[in-house]
């Protein structure tokens, strides 16, 4: 947990979140009572195998779940002066949250970007088409955002297919930070990328978090990725968080059997640092 408690304000507090998909064959529980606190300026890694409910948790935070689900519990959104349960929000009030205060980066940027729209136009929408900026101001904002994610300003004129996977993901990140969010959800942001690109994207997210101070929820199946950035690691299995704690604590003294197997697999797939060899 945070060393200096007064600085790490909780942004979102999830309590006893339960989600079940309802179908003809009865309801299938996906989340079975999840409790999680997300703090400003800190990264929480949500680690688990596919099918453990990680993505469902992310979609619940964005209130983007499909209609045929049963949801219970609370997702408390906490501002400096007040707080409210996101699950009780009407749809129109979510517009001020989604894409503004809570934003998301997806696994496959190629699918999340519009193939027939120039990057600049899509970013303009992310900044807010009716935000009252002049064309010139808008161009400057977009150039600044692209510079922030280490891309050239000329990328704004490109189409998604003209960019590499890593560049596409950088554009997605630029759009996610455009409105200075309080919480950024990164759902497997590097799983579709090469190892060399992966490490650069992770480093970028880390740097941006330092600069912008948002809270980050990093969803990944790879505990090695979590080990690189996370302050806290939550391990998820069958819709429950089975272990949650500070990074060093979880990695060095894993309690749950699943965590232990994840850690040993990651150890097996790592190499010693170059300078030690």
């Amino acid at each position: 947990m945070g060393a200096d408690e007064q600085d790490t304000q909780t942004v979102v507090r999830i309590r006893d979140l339960r989600v079940a998909y309802t179908g003809e064959s009865g309801s299938t529980p996906v989340l079975n009572g999840v409790n999680l606190d997300l703090r400003a300026g800190m990264t929480t890694a949500l680690v688990g195998a596919s099918g453990s409910g990680k993505s469902t948790l992310a979609l619940s935070l964005m209130r983007l779940l499909p209609r045929d689900v049963e949801v219970s519990g609370t997702i408390e959104r906490i501002w400096l002066t007040h707080q409210a349960n996101l699950l009780a929000f009407p749809e129109w009030r979510l517009r001020g949250i989604r894409g503004e205060e809570i934003t998301m980066v997806f696994q496959s940027p190629g699918a999340a970007l519009d193939p027939v729209m120039r990057i600049g136009s899509q970013m303009r929408e992310a900044v807010g088409a009716c935000s009252g900026y002049s064309r010139r101001q808008m161009r400057e904002i977009i150039a600044a955002l692209l510079a922030d994610v280490e891309l050239d300003a000329s990328v704004a004129r490109a189409y998604a297919h003209e960019l590499s996977g890593g560049m596409q993901q950088r554009v997605m990140i630029a759009m996610a930070i455009a409105n200075n969010p309080d919480l950024l959800i990164a759902d497997e942001p590097t799983s579709a990328l090469d190892v060399t690109v992966q490490s650069r994207i992770i480093a970028l997210l880390k740097r941006l978090q330092r600069e912008y101070g948002f809270s980050m929820l990093l969803i990944t199946h790879d505990i090695a990725v979590a080990a690189q950035v996370a302050d806290e690691i939550a391990v998820m299995s069958q819709g429950r968080i089975v272990e949650c704690g500070a990074r060093a604590e979880v990695l060095e003294h894993p309690q749950h059997a699943l965590t232990r197997s994840l850690v040993s697999a990651a150890r097996a797939l790592s190499l010693e640092p170059m300078d030690k060899v």
């Binding site: 190892v195 060399t196 990725v225 990695l251 150890r267 790592s270 190499l271 170059m274």
Partner: peptide, 17 residues
């Protein structure tokens, strides 16, 4: 002992644990 810069880059991208 990677010789080529490309190999070094791939080598440094492997997560250390």
């Amino acid at each position: 002992n990677p010789q080529h810069p490309c190999t070094r880059q791939l080598r440094s991208a492997v997560p250390t644990f």
